[in-house]
Amino acid sequence: MSEKLWSGRQSAQWKKNVGLAEMLKGGVIMDVVNAEQARIAEEAGAAAVMALERVPADIRQDGGVARMSDPKMIKEIQKAVSIPVMAKARIGHIVEAKILEAMEIDFIDESEVLTPADDQYHIYKHDFAVPFVCGCRNLGEALRRIGEGAAMIRTKGEAGTGDIIEAVRHMRTLKEGIRKIQNMPNEELMTEAKELGAPFELLLEIKETGKLPVPNFSAGGVATPADAALMMELGAESVFVGSGIFKSDNPERRAKAIVEAVTYFNDYKKLAEISEDLGAPMTGINCDDLADNEKFAGRGW
């Protein structure tokens, strides 16, 4: 990491946290609601688990306010597995994040899946010792979160639907944004930074490197091994699967298949074998049937 780049000038703490994100590449991060599911996920080859009380599909169905999970349940999951454990804090909820840090969680997801605590500001993540992952729909949102200190970005998709269309849209939009910066002469970058609402310094870095300064994963809508492989094909470096595993008929097999599909995302013969006989996927909700106020992806500023 050259000192000339923004990422080269960040703290050792931040670099170490991006290092953990690097270690999760080519893997699957699975939502789990108890220790038993966490063990199934680890056994299937998950690179990490996301501990939460309700998977997004249930949050969607139940309605009401979705908050950080019960620390007791998170602790049980930490005890049950040896892989990294992530947990979600509400957008802008500094104290939920501090509690998760005090519990030595390996990664905090400042997540739009929970009900936001702040409708203007996200957490200043450079103030924390543990890493954060944040969602984005486009380049501007990704760079604002990275500027605040996120060590990993995931495109949001639409969690809890089992419909991949939003995940694809967000990944394509992000990649298009990056390509545009790469082709811009320097004098256009400041105005682009203004348009995107993104730090200028990060635009300079992207022009130089052609990629985000942190790993870029995909989330929100993955229900099948082919969905996971599609996101890898489009440039995701790992995949988060929420409701897609434990809302399906055979979570053990589906979990294992999705792990394999991420590794062999462009080996279609293998994908055919991997996709065979997994039982029914989650039923899902067509994203077009959701009203705008029912979509999680719009949360984030």
Partner: peptide, 15 residues
Amino acid sequence: PGGESTTIIRLLKNF
């Protein structure tokens, strides 16, 4: 490389 040893060993075996 580094990563999750549990994940890597499973893939080594399964494939």
